[in-house]
Simulated assay, not measured.
Amino acid sequence: MAKQTKQNPSDRQKDVDDRQQLYTDKYFESGHWLLKIWQTIIAILGWLAVILPITITVTSFWASFNPKIPHIWSYSEGIAEIKFIGILLIFSAIMASIFSVTMTLIQNRKRDRLVEQWPTFNPINQRKRKDTIDNFIDNRFGSQEFRENVKTYTVQPEQNLDTHQIQDLYAQHDLDDIG
């Protein structure tokens, strides 16, 4: 037998609060100074490992066009590679833009032709379906007021729903939009 209980609103809020606290991080807790110092140093070194090579490469490339910029390195092969990678990146950006715009146009056209033109359900029968299911549930499990205000409700085995009972109910009342 399945039992249904109505939760108190404060219990539901407690459940939500418990679910929101999924992890902890000692870095943001009070104390743990050695951990904070160590992780901050690692983070700074990581950012330097990203920013420093980019700065050196951009400065060296810029120095090949402007003699006032200090030359960190000036290998002609490196400059040619940077130009080649720049051309590849520009080509990739153009191709990605063309693909994105094309797919957007195709999807908008498909949506206009199919989805917005034909509803996926019969809006006229929607209210009739709601009334039918409400009456069915009221007959089987009691009135809505009773169901919402009862503390404990035991579902009898004969009250369990069959696999396609709701679909059969709609078919009996000629409210089945699928067929």
Rank of each mutant, 00 (worst) to 15 (best):
I106E: 04
S97F: 15
Q156E: 11
A93V: 02
R147N: 05
M95V: 15
R140S: 00
N160K: 11
L105M: 08
Y153Q: 06
P119E: 07
T102F: 06
N135R: 09
T163Y: 08
F121G: 03
F121V: 13
V101A: 09
N135M: 08
E145Q: 13
M103P: 00
K110V: 10
Q126S: 08
R111H: 08
Y170T: 01
N125A: 10
V115M: 11
N108E: 08
F99C: 02
I137P: 01
Q107T: 11
F91A: 15
E116C: 13
A171F: 00
K130E: 14
S143M: 07
T120V: 14
G142E: 00
K130Q: 09
P123L: 04
L161A: 02
K110Q: 09
Q144G: 09
D162W: 09
Q156I: 06
N139C: 00
A171C: 01
P157L: 03
T120D: 04
H164E: 15
S92P: 00
P157W: 00
S100T: 09
F99W: 08
Q156F: 05
I98V: 06
W118R: 13
D134K: 15
V115S: 12
Q144H: 03
L105C: 06
L114I: 14
N125Y: 02
S97D: 09
S92H: 01
K110F: 03
D134A: 14
F99D: 07
N160R: 12
